[in-house]
Amino acid sequence: MIDGRDLVFAVRDRRLVDRVSLAVAAGTVTIVVGPNGAGKSTLLRLLAGDLAPTSGRVTLDGTDLARLSPSQLAGRRAVLPQQVALAFPFTVDEVVRLGADAGRRHVLRRSGAGEPGPSEADLVETVLAEVGLPGWGGRLYPQLSGGEQQRVQFARVLAQVHDPVVEGPDGSPLPRLLFLDEPTASLDIRHQIDLLARARRWARGGGAVLAVIHDLNLAAEFADRIVVLSGGTIAAEGPPAATLTDAVVARVFGLSGIVGRLPPPHLPYILPQARL
């Protein structure tokens, strides 16, 4: 799948990402956490192909990202950015249709040959319902709240890669990728959970999710693997129980004694008040 090797991204002399290797596997949710300025979004943008690494390389199924066209990439991965301001007042329907249209045009072949996909109209309505905005197509996007706009963007991204797996030219299954850059930042707690649950369900269908998230509790609940980034390098990596430990949190965030454990399966939780 997507595989970043020895990635360095430097602006002038400052290395925002410093020799990071990270591979994302199909069927899993990988969540990157870390303090402000740790290089999380830069790492995500390197793996999504937005930025070219200063050194190191990113490959998708063995092919260098730089050698794939925007169209080829659009058929395989969708990216949910932090915030999207529109230059012109599109309706919600028109925004989501951009994703549906891109997914339809750039995809190689849907899995389950012969079976026609949902119509564009049905797909738009489906994804809007999935983000809790059924029937919102007629609203003007600029008039929505920040959280609602974020959910519309998530619907757009879901419309682009609605099937987590597509077929390659030789009929082999090709998993798709979903990049989420702080997807929950402007959402209320209920929609934070809904969004990540939907992303995990998508991953269980065979896709690969890579998300940058600040909330360690959400990361602990929804990640199959957590990558703790600090100062541009990986400080810890592995399943939540192994990475979100008092030692790591103290070292990276400078807060001690705030990690607790739920009863089996011993999911870690963060209680900031425990430091007092």
């Binding site: 943008r45 999504a48 937005d50 066209s69 925007p70 169209s71 990439l73 659009a74 058929g75 991965r77 969708a78 990216v79 950015p81 999207v84 301001a85 529109l86 230059a87 012109f88 599109f90 028109e94 925004v95 951009l98 994703g99 891109a102 045009r105 750039h106 682009q160």
Partner: peptide, 18 residues
């Protein structure tokens, strides 16, 4: 140009050769 309404990076993500 429609994809570009979302932004340049977003247009690329949607498959546009910006």
């Amino acid at each position: 140009l429609d994809a570009l309404v979302l932004g340049e990076a977003e247009a690329v993500h949607l498959g546009t050769d910006v």
